[in-house]
Amino acid sequence: MILARTWEERGLCRADLFDFLHGHYYIASLVVVTLSMLPFALSFEGRRPQTRELVVIAALVAITVAGRAAFFMTPQFKPVVALVIISGAALGPQSGFAVGALSGFVSNFVFGQGPWTPWQMVAFGLIGCLAGLLFRRLAASMGATEAGGGVGPDTGGAASADTGGAVDADTSGGASTDKGDAVKWYEAARLGWDVRARRRVEWLRVAALCAFGFVATFALYGVILDTAALTMFSSTMSKEALLATYLSGVPFNLVHAVSTVIFLAILARPMIEKLERVKKKYGLYARKDGA
């Protein structure tokens, strides 16, 4: 009560707080962005993840950062979003968020931290999380039908045509019924022997990832970072100001989105195969998969 009275004596009231936040979009949105990452951080830390999971996530973060560094010459043309989507699809939403957010953070140790860091973290993290929610099963089936026994370097268009690999499809669902097994066997065998059907399914899966990659990069990442830029240097949040910011961002976001599609088209299949193989070989994330 005393506090309230002294506040009023000074001509301050609760409306002043809103006034203050109204004039400080950057601070207000910074608070929101930071708070939005908190649940992920808390649940990730609270789960006490296995050491193996942590180190695989660290490896993926390092690969992503190295990818961003390798393309330092080409502004906006970066493989980061593609690699984050692949990580999310293969390892699930929570790890996808971790790979995305930490890639944003770690790569800025190389490229420079700035007021943009929290927004990059949240944007990459969100994309990784969404990819995990949408494509977990797709990635699992990609790994199951394609990984086969191919341990060595099998990229560069060397389509591994081993039909035996298709049978692996049902090893993950060990506790399923006989009938389910039969259906799976049938599907696996059909797809395995009919090369054209298999290719078509494969193509559709990569196309789905690419479509998601385009939308996520252009709409999600682009809009989040353009809005962040606006909160920094504008005193108003008018419709015109937002529109002008988004329009001026379109060419950059378009290049970024196209680069994501290109990298996904090239990297999605081999990368997901490798990740699924490591998961299967070492029983990573087994608690969730085995259910």
């Binding site: 050491t51 193996r52 180190v55 695989v56 390092a62 690969i63 990229t155 081999p270 490591v278």
Partner: peptide
């Protein structure tokens, strides 16, 4: 391009295997 891609492929496979080995060692 093919040889460069193969290097990347080997590197990623090695990185993932190395990650598992590192965590087991830890």
């Amino acid at each position: 391009v093919r040889n460069g891609g193969a290097i990347l492929s080997v590197l990623v496979t090695w990185a993932l295997e190395n990650a598992i080995e590192t965590s087991d060692s830890m």
